[in-house]
Write a protein that binds this DNA or RNA. Sequence first.
DNA 1: TTTCGTGCAAATATTTTGCACAGAA
DNA 2: TTCTGTGCAAAATATTTGCACGAAA
Lengths: 141, 141
Amino acid sequence: MDVDGALRDHGLRRTPQRRAVLDALMGGRAMSAQEVHEAARVTTPELGLSTVYRTLITLSEAGVVDAIGQHDGEATYRLCSGGHHHHLICDTCRRVVELSECDLTAVQDAIAAEHGFSVTGHSLTFHGVCGDCARSGSGAG
Amino acid sequence: MDVDGALRDHGLRRTPQRRAVLDALMGGRAMSAQEVHEAARVTTPELGLSTVYRTLITLSEAGVVDAIGQHDGEATYRLCSGGHHHHLICDTCRRVVELSECDLTAVQDAIAAEHGFSVTGHSLTFHGVCGDCARSGSGAG
DNA sequence: TTTCGTGCAAATATTTTGCACAGAA
DNA sequence: TTCTGTGCAAAATATTTGCACGAAA
């Protein structure tokens, strides 16, 4: 999915700042607003931090990015496809793999019945170390 | 598990403040530091907010409480048993049920193999509405 | 032209920390 | 007595917001 298409498809104006934010997230890693800011400033030095925050909020609402988890007290975001999915996160390089298969419906129903809940959703996140990082022994994005 | 026992078993000093924090969490709901502070102040008015933060950190490290999720930008905590478990959260009254059964080992192995990760752990959280809240139609903790 | 997006700086809100004193072991 | 825990207030940090200007449609 290209950056411009993502923006246009959601009725968002295409500005250099938004392109820069999306470009930074294109690497597929989970990034905090501050990290996005740093990364995007390489190509767009005049980008303001508040614009990054605002853009991330806008993109979250549009479903273009997901807010997944926290890293050192900072919320982290990632480019995501639309539907229901889970995440597999490399704790070393913070790469995130989307898992689209989801076999938890049965489990969810069983739990709902057992505890008298009406379960509306679930979130499942796997943590580990990706092959690249395992091989290189350190963070090799 | 009683409050004093929990503290003693982890080699923590038993102070009125810590008892008050644990008492507040005894309800089994997920609470933010500020909510714990408010609740605990009913019985321990001189309790300081920073003490609550420090106590929650101490208790987290001791494994007495879990930091689970965020509510309105505030981290929430809950009394938890020691081992690996998942959570079933009522979005209305924020009651949390611990789920000890965990059938994800096979899924985890399959995912690890498929994506070349070495998976070290996972977290699974179900959200929904508990029976009490469903019946009363509103938050009836 | 009209509307939306942005930069800057100030404002908010949560969480952390320094220090002197009180309380638990 | 000794060492840890606490209260208070100030500090640090992340995030949000107001406002005037600039750029996209």
